[in-house]
Amino acid sequence: MTALRLTFGIDPGLTGAIVTLLDGVAGPLIDMPTRRVDGWGEIDARALAIFIREQRAAHPGAYVSACIEKVGAMPGDGGTSAFRFGETSGGIRSTLDVLGVPYTRAIPAVWKRQFALIGKDKDAARQLAIQRFPEAAHMLTRKKDNGRADALLIALYGEQRLASGVAA
């Protein structure tokens, strides 16, 4: 069945994920595709683009958008770490731009507050995602699946913003 709306939720870290919501229901997801370049891990933009294109091709005519977590350097991050994290986020945004996928950014404190996750551990997001998306529970069985859970909740946040007329 072809969806009318595809929303990609993206947790942009190298251990993050990208998930597709199909008319608000959890669909295909992948852990953030990475590759090694000169001994460093970085986003595999080609694999990311292929995933997005495949989802779009499976649902011709659907409205496609994305919501990506707006990340920044954390206190205590070294310069190299902060630069590499920013580079990853920029690569994801560039991939979306090249593919013509409009996106909004979700400030962590804002989307987490909306889902009552402020001050809770990472597993709370995974438990909430299982509750909200029972069809995705099999993809969220491990504690380290918190990146997948965050991506699902970021996608949901993006859809809710779009529905309220806030997102572009």
Rank of each mutant, 00 (worst) to 15 (best):
R56C: 05
A109Y: 06
Q131K: 15
D44P: 10
D121E: 08
E54H: 14
R113D: 05
K120S: 03
A109H: 10
R93M: 10
W111F: 02
I118N: 13
R93Q: 11
F83R: 10
G61H: 08
V101W: 09
E69R: 12
A116T: 00
G119W: 11
G78I: 09
G90C: 05
Y103Q: 05
F115L: 08
R53P: 08
A73M: 06
V101R: 13
L99W: 05
R126L: 11
G100S: 07
D77C: 04
L117T: 00
S65N: 09
P134T: 12
Q127K: 15
L48C: 07
S65I: 00
P102G: 02
A49R: 09
K70S: 10
G91Q: 14
V101F: 08
A58N: 10
S89P: 00
T80Y: 12
D77W: 14
I52V: 12
S65E: 02
M139E: 01
S81M: 10
Y103L: 05
V71T: 13
Q55W: 02
S89C: 10
A47N: 06
P108T: 00
G91F: 05
I50G: 08
G90Q: 05
R56M: 09
K122I: 01
L140Y: 03
I118R: 15
P108H: 05
R113S: 11
G78F: 09
F85H: 12
I107M: 11
A58C: 05
G61R: 12
L48A: 09
M139N: 10
C67A: 13
L128Q: 04
S94C: 09
I130P: 02
A125E: 01
T88S: 15
E87A: 09
L128A: 05
A62P: 15
K120E: 01
L48E: 03
A82E: 02
L99N: 06
R46T: 07
S65K: 15
R126C: 07
E42W: 03
P75V: 15
L48W: 01
S94N: 11
H138G: 13
A125V: 00
A124N: 06
A109C: 04
R93N: 07
Q131D: 04
S65M: 09
H138S: 14
I92T: 04
R132Q: 08
S94L: 12
R105T: 08
F83N: 03
D97Q: 12
A136D: 00
A45F: 03
I92E: 06
A136Y: 01
I68P: 04
Y103V: 01
R46M: 09
I43P: 09
Q114E: 09
L128Y: 03
D77Q: 13
A57Q: 14
Y103R: 14
S94T: 11
A45H: 06
D123T: 05
M74E: 04
G72K: 15
H59A: 04
